[in-house]
């Protein structure tokens, strides 16, 4: 049956430890305001990280997601501003903007995926390239500055980030749905099983009648769509996009996936682990900001230690499995 080893429980234990530590250090930590804040901020990276889990599990990698988010945000804002004269301010405008975001995300993911599966270039190289391309395009379109959504449209769109259902913010709800869906797909559907098979050994998968290229292509397309979805929820927060939107998101997403126990070389994916990974990363940030123990400037260092520690634990596990 499922073995509850250190590497399985490690991320969960770390999360619990952080919560206890946070509550101990600052009485505000467990307030609903702070929890909502942490979760809502986690939601963007979280949705992207769920998609990233599938990409990495099937043996791929996507470095372009942060730049892609900036590019999608820029395209969405430009499109919405351009449609105001015809659609006016209202639900149709927001829906159209969302459609544009999802479409651009889908196309961007499709582009990455086709270059990787059809042209046969290494995922690292392809997405390193598109990472530069997306970010540079946004900077160029914004002429080095900021693309801002029309003020009234922004006012109308704001609730998508700040409001919610039953007091739970929309980004948190959407993130939760995506996480549950992702876990089910990874654990209980053919698609998830194929991702793991391809990441374990793509030759075995091919000899087993698995459509390897199609499954891999889909991981990038799904990730693109999820980046689009994250952007839809992110844009109403600031109402603008610039060359620095989504900076380093790709690394945070990859880090969350790895902390959660997914193997970087592929073959084993754990979506719930990724969710915990995302929460660990945002909690560290949050606790450092609330408590005076350690300078918040050391945030990156602490996150770095956690990432390395997670991989050390993973290696202990894989060498045990090797026997």
């Amino acid at each position: 049956m499922r073995n509850l080893s250190l590497s399985t429980l490690g991320p969960l234990a770390a999360l619990v430890l952080l919560v206890v530590l946070g509550a101990f250090l600052n009485s505000n930590f467990l307030s609903s305001g702070n929890i909502t804040n942490v979760l809502a901020r986690s939601a963007f990276i979280g949705m992207i990280a769920v998609g990233m889990t599938f990409v990495i599990t099937s043996g791929g990698l996507d470095l372009s997601v942060g730049s892609m988010a900036a590019f999608i945000a820029g395209m969405m804002i430009l499109a919405m501003n351009a449609m105001i004269p015809s659609l006016g301010i209202g639900v149709p405008l927001v829906l159209a903007g969302m459609g544009v975001a999802l479409l651009v995300g889908l196309l961007a993911g499709l582009g990455n995926g086709l270059l990787i599966t059809k042209v046969g270039i290494e995922p690292f190289i392809v997405t390193l390239g598109t990472m530069g391309i997306f970010r540079s395009l946004v900077t160029w379109i914004a002429d080095g500055g900021t693309l801002s959504l029309n003020f009234e449209a922004r006012q109308f769109y704001r609730p998508v980030y700040y409001d919610g259902l039953f007091g739970i913010a929309w980004p948190i709800i959407v993130f939760a749905i995506i996480a549950v869906l992702g876990e089910v797909v990874m654990r209980h559907t053919r698609y998830g099983r194929y991702c793991e098979a391809i990441g374990s050994n793509d030759k075995v998968a091919r000899y087993s009648a698995v459509k390897v290229e199609r499954v891999q292509l889909m991981t990038y397309v799904i990730l693109g769509l999820l980046v689009g979805l994250a952007t839809i929820l992110y844009v109403p927060r600031l109402g603008s996009a610039s060359g620095s939107t989504g900076l380093l998101w790709e690394l945070e997403a990859i880090a969350a996936v790895i902390i959660g126990g997914t193997a970087l070389k592929g073959g084993f994916g754990r979506v719930w682990g990724t969710v915990i990974g995302v929460l660990i990363l945002s909690l560290i940030d949050n606790i450092l900001n609330l408590a005076d123990l350690v300078s918040p400037y050391l945030n990156g260092a602490i996150q770095g230690v956690i990432i390395v520690l997670a991989v050390v634990l993973q290696r202990g596990k894989s060498s045990a499995e090797g026997r």
Partner: peptide, 18 residues
């Protein structure tokens, strides 16, 4: 070992893959 079975996966996952 390289084309037939997923060595890191269990019996069930290998049996039903195709």
């Amino acid at each position: 070992k390289e084309r037939g079975l997923l060595l890191a996966k269990n019996l069930r996952q290998n049996l039903t893959l195709s």
